[in-house]
C-alpha cells in the first residue's frame, strides 16, 4: 500500500487517516528537522564521516565549529584581516580536499591547526608582513589613562613586529602556545616534531623576543 508523508499546514496538528487504497500520514515537521540538525549531535569522527558521505550541511558545520580558531591562527601569522580571511578559506578548502586522509588519531582541531600552520608558513615565506595598525581595543590591558593606553599600544606594536621577525618555527610555536594555549605535546604533533624540540623552540622564541624587544636582563 503506497504511503504518502506530507506536512500539515499552519495549525500543527497531526492526524492519521486511511483512504481507500492509500495510507496518508499527515505530520508536522519537528523543530529540529532541518537537514543539519542531526549533525549537531555527531562527534568529530562521525562528522568527518558524514562529510565523506556528502551529507548536506556536514562540512558547513565543521567550518562553523572551527572557523574562529583557524582564523585567529591565520591572523597571528599574517597580521591583517584580509589576508587572514583568504588564508582561512584556503585552509578549509585544503582540509576538505584532504578529509579522506584524516585518520582520527588526533583531534580534528589539531589536524586543522597543522594545515593552517603549514599554509600560513608558506604564505608568509619571504614576505614582509603587512601588519594592520593597532588600536586600543585589541589590547588586553588595564591601562586606564590616555597616556598609559598610548604607551600600551606602542608596546604592543613593538611586540607584534618582534613576533613577526622570529624564525618561522619559533613563531609558529609561540603562536600556538601563547595565543591558542595548546600543550607542548599538541604543538609537537602539529609541527611534526618531538615534545623536547617544541619546548626548545618555545624557549628560544621567548629569548629571541626578549632580545628583539631590548629586554635583556
Amino acid at each position: 500500500m503506497p504511503v504518502i508523508a506530507t506536512m500539515d499546514g499552519a495549525e500543527g496538528t497531526c492526524s492519521d487517516r486511511t483512504w481507500p487504497g492509500w495510507s496518508v500520514t499527515l505530520t508536522q515537521p519537528r523543530a529540529d528537522a532541518s537537514p543539519a540538525a542531526h549533525l549537531e549531535t555527531l562527534d568529530e569522527r562521525a562528522l568527518v564521516a558524514a562529510c565523506l558521505d556528502a551529507a548536506f550541511g556536514a562540512f558547513d558545520l565543521l567550518v562553523t565549529r572551527h572557523r574562529r580558531a583557524v582564523y585567529q591562527v591565520c591572523y597571528r601569522f599574517v597580521g591583517n584581516h584580509e589576508d587572514a580571511a583568504d588564508l582561512t578559506q584556503d585552509v578549509f578548502l585544503r582540509a576538505y580536499r584532504a578529509l579522506g586522509r584524516f585518520k582520527g588519531d588526533s583531534a580534528l582541531a589539531t589536524w586543522l591547526y597543522r594545515i593552517a600552520v603549514n599554509a600560513a608558513l608558506n604564505h608568509v615565506a619571504g614576505r614582509k608582513p603587512a601588519l594592520e595598525p593597532l588600536d586600543g581595543h585589541v589590547l588586553q590591558t588595564n591601562e586606564a589613562g590616555p597616556a598609559d593606553r598610548l604607551a600600551a599600544v606602542e608596546r604592543a606594536i613593538r611586540v607584534r613586529q618582534a613576533v613577526a621577525r622570529l624564525p618561522r618555527r619559533q613563531r609558529a610555536t609561540l603562536i600556538l602556545r601563547v595565543y591558542q594555549d595548546l600543550p607542548h605535546q599538541e604543538i609537537a604533533r602539529i609541527l611534526g616534531t618531538s615534545v623536547g624540540a617544541a619546548k626548545a623552540n618555545f624557549f628560544h622564541a621567548l629569548n629571541n623576543l626578549r632580545k628583539l624587544l631590548g629586554r635583556e636582563p
Partner: peptide, 20 residues
C-alpha cells in the same frame, strides 16, 4: 631569567586578534 621570560610572555599575551 625566569622573571624576564615571564615578562616577555606577559607582553606577548597582551595582543589580541581584533574581532571581525
Amino acid at each position: 631569567e625566569v622573571d624576564a621570560l615571564r615578562d616577555v610572555l606577559r607582553a606577548a599575551k597582551e595582543i589580541e586578534v581584533p574581532e571581525p
